[in-house]
Write a protein that binds this DNA or RNA. Sequence first.
DNA 1: ACGTATTTGTACGTATGTATC
DNA 2: AGATACATACGTACAAATACG
Lengths: 139, 139
Amino acid sequence: MIVIDPDADRPVYKQLADLVREQIESGELPPDARIPAEVVYVQEHGISRDSVRKAMAQLRHEGLIITTARGSRVRPAPAREEITVDEGLAYARMPTEPERRQLRLQPGVPVLVIERPGQEPEILPADRAAVRIRREGHG
Amino acid sequence: MIVIDPDADRPVYKQLADLVREQIESGELPPDARIPAEVVYVQEHGISRDSVRKAMAQLRHEGLIITTARGSRVRPAPAREEITVDEGLAYARMPTEPERRQLRLQPGVPVLVIERPGQEPEILPADRAAVRIRREGHG
DNA sequence: ACGTATTTGTACGTATGTATC
DNA sequence: AGATACATACGTACAAATACG
């Protein structure tokens, strides 16, 4: 069993985040699986709730888990609708909090910005949209 | 002067984040400007350092500020190099922590993923890259 | 080279509030 | 109503990085 070492160079909360991330990536914690409650990690590893919360916050910002008042779960791989764009520029950034609320985005989800010539930029949720780039005459 | 109300419906740390975000968006805190030290907000608003740190963390995750051991600054608008892609799919997500370190990304910076047919996905820093979509015969 | 001041980072504690079942 | 679990908010202490004299 991998244990958390408070004397290690790496902070306790990052060690826990690494641990849980590996469990998610290995499939030990599959999509939609329940993440143990904060107090479980506190007791199992003898660390503070503060450290557990920081670890979970990090995983949330990485888009790996979703947290509600009932607990956290492994975030399933998003299904993205393909948007076809003829001409323009596409880039990504994090939404501001007001934007995030308006677009009803989970924490840890970027926005995809599409700038088309002569139009307002279009702001799309990056967990629900992807840009299909297509050579003309092939679709 | 806008003050922070501990009895408001909105949490103290989000009120402070809103306040500083507005100062950034209005230009009162221009790009590269120094953000006051945590202790300044603690004293000026009579709130805990914990709340100030949570507010700054939120702004960091929104990509609005950059924090070092010497303090925080307003993040300048990123200059993105345009990548031209003939054919494929582009989407965005947050990097995991190991990815973030490897790509030397600031917190709050997504990655742009380009999937081309028959190739490994290309992972680009979203603050330095954008995808140019071009109709054939127009570039 | 060294200590000091400043500022953020980590880690603990406690208490209370809010949402959900 | 009660149990569970996360959210907010205060406190303390010490570590680490950086800049300055």
